Every structure is written in structure tokens, then in C-alpha cells.
Amino acid sequence: MNLEAMAKILIGIGLFIVLAGIMLYGLSRLGAYGIKIPGDVYIKKGNFSFYFPVVSCLIISLLLTLIINLIGRR
């Protein structure tokens, strides 16, 4: 892999991170931060709470897989 191709990849990753940050900031300003989807694990006992977003992780993984496959078909 040459230096120019690696530079383009790093720029693309950087733009993705910036866009993801802007999106998360916007969602938190709208009050949509911490949305709990049915199927996510949430346990609360006394002063202990545990939250594991199983379904959210599956949905994000599916969306990212679709996006990467669409981009990679060029």
C-alpha cells in the first residue's frame, strides 16, 4: 500500500469520527441520548446498575455492515 492510499484511508476515518461525534452531540442535545430498545439488558439492584445494549449493538453492527458493503462495491 502506498503512502497516498494510506493518507486517503486515514482522512476517511477521521471524517467518519468527526461526523459520528457531531451526530452524537446533536442526539444528546435533543435528549435522545441513552435510548433503550426492547431486548437491551438492564439490571438494577440497590445501588448497583448494569446496562448492556445487546439489541442496539446488533442494529449498529447490521447498519455498519450494510454501509461498508455498499461502499466496497465500487
Rank of each mutant, 00 (worst) to 15 (best):
M1Q: 12
M1R: 06
M1I: 11
L3A: 15
A5K: 12
M6L: 14
M6K: 11
K8A: 10
I9V: 14
I9N: 13
I9Y: 12
I11Y: 06
G12Y: 04
I13G: 02
I13V: 11
G14C: 07
G14L: 08
L15S: 03
L15N: 04
F16W: 11
I17G: 07
I17R: 14
L19F: 15
L19R: 08
A20W: 08
A20E: 12
G21D: 12
G21K: 14
I22D: 03
M23D: 09
M23R: 10
L24P: 03
L27F: 15
S28Y: 09
S28Q: 14
R29Q: 04
R29H: 04
R29M: 04
L30F: 14
G31D: 11
Y33W: 13
Y33K: 07
K36G: 03
G39I: 05
V41A: 04
V41C: 04
V41G: 00
I43A: 01
G46W: 02
N47H: 04
S49E: 09
Y51V: 00
Y51C: 01
V55I: 09
C57Q: 05
L58T: 06
L58A: 11
I59Q: 07
I59S: 15
S61F: 11
S61L: 08
S61Q: 11
L62I: 12
L62C: 02
L62A: 10
T65M: 06
L66M: 08
L66E: 00
L66P: 00
I68P: 01
N69F: 13
L70E: 09
G72V: 01
R74L: 15
R74P: 13
R74K: 11
